[in-house]
């Protein structure tokens, strides 16, 4: 027993090192599986507030551009209003982007809405041009969104022309492009084909623009295409987004929970 204690004391530094590293690894695993802690992320009020203050200051340099953008969006909204068909299941909550990265493998953005504004984990996020991402961590006033330009993200999409389904993934290289996988060789893919959300998951209603086909390659012997998609959303210029409140989503998730 005494010998054991001696050994433990002798290697105490190493033991503490191993213990700390194990704890840190558990944090990583936990964070990949289900990141629910809003304090230990940019949804943390103090951290997000700091980013927000800085973006308020730097935001003045983009005012003119944003005015133009808002004017355009107003116009398109009015058009939509004119032809609205009373779809009340889906509501949009507008939010401001407080912080965002676009050049890492795992990019995230922080928005200034949280549980106090009715935001929930797993809700879809879009902007006027197309899909943005999915809410991942929710704090009381801020939330962290995983955008489609994150290598951990998969998005179910379909071709607008023939409803053929594929999966959108990001290769970590360029925030303007992503890859569409699972498109079999018998499909005819043309440059310029429009890709929209499939509506197969309750996160995004169907038909939100994702992007257009930039190039498609079918290597000899391959049974699936390699398709590059030019994304509709310009992530480098992202300032405002809309969180999707889908009344169906809650019902569908309740049903799925009931199945377990």
């Amino acid at each position: 027993m005494q010998n054991l204690l001696k050994i433990l004391l002798r290697y105490s530094n190493f033991l503490v090192f191993v213990l700390l590293e194990v704890a840190a690894f558990l944090l990583i695993v936990y964070n990949h599986a289900a990141p629910r802690s809003s304090v230990l992320s940019t949804a943390n009020r103090m951290v997000a507030w700091q980013y927000e203050t800085v973006s308020e200051i730097t935001g003045y340099f983009h005012l003119r551009q944003q005015n133009d953008q808002l004017a355009m969006e107003n116009a398109s909204l009015r058009n939509q209003l004119a032809q609205a068909e009373g779809v009340e299941i889906i509501q949009y909550q507008s939010a401001k982007v407080v912080q965002m990265t676009t050049d890492r493998l795992h990019n995230y953005l922080t928005i200034n809405c949280g549980t106090d504004d009715g935001i929930q984990r797993g809700q879809g996020v879009r902007n006027e041009n197309g899909v943005v991402g999915v809410v991942r961590t929710v704090g009381t006033h801020y939330s962290v969104v995983m955008p489609i330009i994150n290598t951990m993200m998969n998005l179910s999409c379909r071709f607008l022309k023939n409803d053929y389904i594929g999966t959108l993934q990001w290769d970590g290289k360029d925030s303007r492009f992503a890859l569409l996988t699972d498109v079999a060789a018998h499909m005819v893919v043309n440059t310029g084909d429009t890709i929209v959300t499939s509506g197969l998951s309750p996160i995004f209603p169907e038909g939100i623009p994702v992007g257009i086909v930039e190039s498609s390659v079918l290597h000899e012997g391959d049974s699936y295409y390699t398709i590059h998609i030019r994304l509709s959303t310009n992530f480098k210029r992202l300032k405002y987004v809309e969180v999707i409140h889908n009344a169906d989503q809650i019902q569908i998730e309740e049903l799925l929970d009931g199945l377990d």
């Binding site: 990141p35 992320s41 940019t42 951290v47 795992h106």
Partner: peptide, 20 residues
């Protein structure tokens, strides 16, 4: 490391690197 992780949304990553 933990403080840096909060700013990066990468819980645990900087923590382990800094301990090492």
């Amino acid at each position: 490391g933990l403080i840096m992780d909060i700013f990066c949304n990468s819980l645990g990553v900087h923590t382990s690197a800094c301990i090492l």
